[in-house]
Amino acid sequence: MQIMMDVAASGTKLPFGNNVLTAVLGYGVVFLGLMMLMGIVYVMGTIFKAKTNRLEPLKVAKLPTVGSQSPQKLKEPQGEPAPGTAGEVKLYGVPDKEAAMIMAIVASQMGKPLNELRFKSIKEVKEDEV
């Protein structure tokens, strides 16, 4: 059925063969393009996974082992915190729950995950101290 319609000055109706060819070719190009992109993303992912795996044992090696320290020492860690941990936060007049809430708010405001931030201490400032 041929409809009466305006024909764009620059455009013409495609012959059947060309129509099929263009449709198949177009779908093929989209598939090919995205499959090639998939290959690139796979390669990228493999490289990054390999890099992460290489760094992982180093991080684990630096972590303190539980059996090597006395319970007393574990309560008060000495020196620099181990890589990958946030270390220890000292609380002055702030309950644990409130401290957790404050840290979550700060992380949210900064737009960074909590495990990428290090809090050294949280101190309550009384009104009369201001």
């Binding site: 409809i3 024909v7 764009a8 013409t12 109706k13």
Partner: peptide, 15 residues
């Protein structure tokens, strides 16, 4: 591409 094919069949121009 199926709609493209169909539109061509019923008389629309390629564009």
């Amino acid at each position: 591409f199926l709609a493209f094919f169909g539109a061509n069949l019923i008389g629309f121009t390629g564009n």
